[in-house]
Computed example of a mutant assay.
Amino acid sequence: MQDRTQLVAHARRTIARGSKSFAAASMLFDRVTRERVWLLYAWCRAADDLADAQDMGGDLGDQSEAEARLATIRERTALALAGQPTGDASFDGLGVVAAECGLTQAMCDDVIAGFAMDAADWRPRDRDDMLQYCYHVAGAVGVMMAKVMGVPDDDGDTLASDTLDRACDLGIAFQLGNIVRDLWEDDAAGRCYLPVEWLVEADIPPGQHMKPIYREPLVAMVQQACLLARTYEASARIGAARLPFRSRWAILSATGIYGAIARKVEDAGEHGWDHRAFTSRFEKLGHVAGGLRASMAPPPEGCAEQAKGRPLTRLGFAERAREKGYAA
């Protein structure tokens, strides 16, 4: 197994290839936190790629062996958490950051449950199902990232518990943005993360939502999803204010970058999928500057009130997961 320095170098290359937006924001963390963030990101990226038979989030590969790939993710993750070599630097890196920051099997299982939902060709029935998926593939990652940034366990600590809730909320906001941005790519891969109830109410037949004739109702659904994203983002800004300065700056910069992508899709209306929305290097620098300003001020007025509109929070997602049998 490679040593920590080699694993960090591998993780840095991974985030540089896998997410230019998060790679840019990650440079704002202090060195120790930055390296840990990279290590956690590399596991998330490797597991996601393995689950979808893809490379760095690219086109989906052959999905016929999804359950076998899911079993590999479980096996390598368990080995990593036990401090054993896995044969994969991204999973070995998870073992390092888990030991340093107290990441647990249960935390990893919450994320892997999202891959299991895709492996089962799962579709969200309603809004809460859509948010449940966002929780597993991104909200649970937000909780792990908060632990990496030094947020303590929530056992008996009300403030820590609330901060972890809001870290989860940021992941959900990011994933809602991903859903609206990637509607075209997901449709090409035979996937759709918009609630079935929304499609039925709009009289859109299954698998037809990207047809030009349905663009008007599709735009209305994107607006609903973006409104939800802003609600969760408002909550996340309250939690970010409690982080150390460098972490606060990095997270608020990432919030600006990812939020801008969702706003571009929303603002483009029926043309939101003419090309894949992204932020330019110049725009990223603007959001880094905006993140710096935001990190030196209290959360914007109205965040607390807006955050009350969240339909579900971390504990609610955990309860739904138990009730509905969503498990890694």
Rank of each mutant, 00 (worst) to 15 (best):
E75C: 04
M56E: 14
A89L: 10
A16T: 13
A25K: 05
T33H: 04
Q6P: 11
S90G: 07
D48Q: 05
A16P: 05
R69G: 02
A42K: 01
L28K: 00
G95P: 09
A51T: 06
D49L: 03
R36F: 03
E75S: 12
M27H: 10
D88H: 09
I73D: 01
L60Q: 13
W38A: 07
A78S: 04
D59N: 10
W38S: 03
M56A: 08
T33W: 07
Q54L: 00
L39G: 10
G58I: 02
S19W: 04
A16V: 11
R45D: 03
G18W: 00
A99V: 09
V32Q: 10
G18S: 09
V96P: 03
Y41I: 05
L94H: 01
A16I: 13
A71E: 04
D92F: 11
A23T: 14
G87A: 14
T5K: 08
A82R: 00
F29H: 07
L7T: 12
S26K: 08
L39A: 11
E75A: 07
A11D: 01
F91V: 01
L28A: 09
A23E: 03
E67T: 14
S26N: 06
P85C: 11
G93N: 03
L81M: 05
R17A: 11
G18T: 02
W43H: 07
A42P: 04
A99L: 09
S21V: 15
A68Y: 15
D52F: 01
G87V: 15
G57E: 14
A82W: 04
L79F: 02
A66D: 05
A98M: 00
W38K: 04
G58T: 13
L81Q: 07
